[in-house]
Nucleic acid binder design. Structure first.
Lengths: 391, 391
DNA sequence: CTGTTTTATTTTACGACGCAAAATAAATTT
DNA sequence: AAATTTATTTTGCGTCGTAAAATAAAACAG
């Protein structure tokens, strides 16, 4: 489904406003290329919806003073919910600037079915709202990020961990339970949306977001729109074959996939194998990784090399991606700055070496620290992005 | 620049018409989702422009008989021009169905500057028109395909062989010379456009075209539109790093790029190296390759393995691409069916092995023979695609 | 203090587009 | 010949975005 011109124009006004805030109508006209009259009417509508507010200004010189416009952070609130690495449900309330107003965490004891998971999400979200100072009727929308293959257009889950089968109407299930419009998207897509609206992707039409953390994921904006592939696959990176022959086995059944080398889990698993230990469970991985970082800091070559190899492989994979698609920016997100310390050297070396000279551009690729709240920011971004019925 | 709704609707009518031809207005309304009244007015315009014609039908049953619509192949003619492998300029006239009406070939003796090259193109095109039965004033547009980095939006060349520098207004130069609107695009993009309008990409919104011939190239349609990256780089495949360490040198300065292994030139060059001979010049490559094919057919392992390796690498690279972006279809074009004979086995094996199980889908990837006329078909496609001012 | 100038925003008038519903057209069936 | 069926066109309407004109709100000049 294509966004209408109408929706597109509204959205570009909102995006430019978000990026240049505070900004006058005249400036918006210049930024968007739309006629001033058009801006007047779009802004009128946004003000009526309470999403933006006018701000009186001390007059700066000659002429009628401009009226600056700002996002009204209190215009609407959004719940962003996601599953954390430790198996909790994190539900946070964000305002329209992507600021977290309230945060709530519930344990997730799910029986593994999607019906139950949706139910647990609904409960956690209800708890989060109840525990917050925000009245329930000010919560305009719910955004849920799942580590899954999701069709965000209609809120269905196609594949999550052990679940595969007919698309499950996840968003609808939560929406029925709580009576609040609900959207579901892939976790990485939420991070990309957060960057596009509130982060380093602001004003950048074509960029890629990579999450290098426990797992590995990627998403891509193209011409100012998040790419949604046929199965939500539009910028998968983890299953790039990085070791052609005799590579490590990957959960997908194949060998030599990037994600078997370049992620915190991959590094921890490899270290465990070397030490002849069993793989730790998901909750233990961060601790194990911290221990590995300690060893690396004390000069343990084995660990340093392991992490370096992950970085090198990621660099090569990203170089290949850049060579193929020439994004303006690549933002590599991680929750672990320790990882960056040891990864970035070999990463940038490989990246530079394998990138076409034409496209070698220092600063195109950057590391950035993130945290779980980014998902709630992404949910807020999703609300803005979907204000006019588009995805 | 975004296509307007207006242009988008016109274009989808034209595309559906092209794909379902002959077809009635009512059927078009169903196919496009547009209102019948809208179809009436769009069709009226297309008929007035002479691009489509009505066709009276024997009434098939009850009710008012439908009036079928067809593309009017004679509605406009297009010159498609390109540089062939043997260093000639090939200028062909195509009708709106992509059928070649007339073909003309001139030797290219260029001094290497873009000004001169554009001049030579203009001459060859003028000769082609003069030698054809089509009156010059029926030639609506010229499309030129260059093995270059091109900004097809404004017809400038950014990089061609030895030329690098400020974008050169190639289309404008030819247009001034001949007085006929002229567009320039990358050769591979033209092939993709030809597939989209007249070939196996008809009706497929997301597909990739790979040219496996003397060189290696790729282009991608996304949501029914050709992707144009920032430097025309939207689906480059040749500089995927396929051999991480100690790979063959590539023209780009790096080592281990796919195009150093998987193309006719790459195979011929490798064979020459093995034999301790000098690299043959471009014009000789096809002959040398024919000789290699003979050796392969008579069971020469060395040659068979060389070609197989190229196929394996291409298979892996395409698998990586599919894993990343999940195109609906991939069309691998080549002018050499001999190549396919020896490449396809190892190619499909590697492709299958390295593609995510979820995305393994026999029939997604196919080989297809092509020829130089495809560029003229692509030029015709470009005209249709740009009827309403979009790219 | 009043008129002029400057800059920002809104209003007005208009044209383009696409839709729904109604009208018309052109056949077959009764 | 009238009714029915299906296809296409016409009509009337609402929305959108623009250019030009009007209005608003300030500083400046005298």
């Amino acid at each position: 489904m294509r966004m209408s011109d109408h929706a597109f124009n509204r959205l570009s006004v909102l995006k430019k406003l978000r990026a240049a805030e505070p900004v006058s109508r005249t400036a918006l006209a210049r930024l968007t290329g739309l006629n001033g009259a058009t801006i007047t009417s779009i802004v009128r509508d946004l003000v009526a919806r309470g999403l933006i507010v006018e701000e009186q200004l001390a007059s700066p010189g000659r002429g009628r003073p401009r009226i600056n416009l700002r996002i009204n952070p209190e215009g609407a609130f959004v719940v962003g919910a996601t599953m954390t690495d430790d198996g909790d449900l994190l539900a946070e309330i964000a305002d329209l600037r992507g600021h977290i107003v309230s945060s709530h965490r519930d344990e997730l004891n799910s029986n593994g079915t999607l019906t139950d998971l949706a139910q647990k999400f609904a409960e956690a979200i209800a708890n989060a709202i109840a525990a917050s100072p925000i009245p329930a009727d000010r919560v305009a929308q719910i955004g849920i990020g799942l580590p899954a293959i999701v069709d965000s257009r209609n809120g269905t889950v196609e594949h999550l961990q052990t679940f595969t089968g007919a698309p499950f109407p996840f968003a609808l299930t939560v929406e029925r339970e709580l009576g609040i419009p609900t959207r579901v998207d892939n976790s990485i897509n939420l991070l990309a949306r957060a960057e596009h609206w509130f982060g380093e992707g602001t004003g950048v039409a074509d960029f890629m977001v990579v999450l290098l953390d426990l797992g590995l994921g990627a998403a891509r904006y193209h011409e100012g729109q998040l790419l949604l592939g046929s199965h939500g696959i539009a910028a998968e990176l983890g299953h790039t074959k990085i070791v052609p022959e005799g590579g490590r086995p990957c959960g997908c059944g194949a060998h030599g996939c990037l994600q078997a080398y370049s992620s915190i889990s991959a590094i921890v698993y490899q270290a465990a194998e070397i030490a002849g230990e069993a793989r730790p469970g998901i909750p233990a991985i961060r601790n194990r990784f911290a221990a590995l970082i300690d060893r690396a800091r004390s000069g343990d070559r084995e660990v340093v090399d392991l992490i370096a190899r992950g970085g090198r492989y990621l660099g090569r994979a990203l170089a290949n991606h850049i060579n193929m698609r020439a994004p303006e920016r690549v933002i590599v997100l991680t929750k672990s700055p320790d990882l960056v310390d040891f990864v970035s050297g070999p990463f940038f070396e490989a990246l530079h070496r394998d990138t076409l000279p034409l496209l070698r551009d220092l600063g195109r690729v950057t590391f950035k620290e993130t945290d779980d709240s980014a998902f709630a920011r992404g949910a807020a971004a999703m609300v803005l992005e979907q204000l006019y019925g588009s995805w």
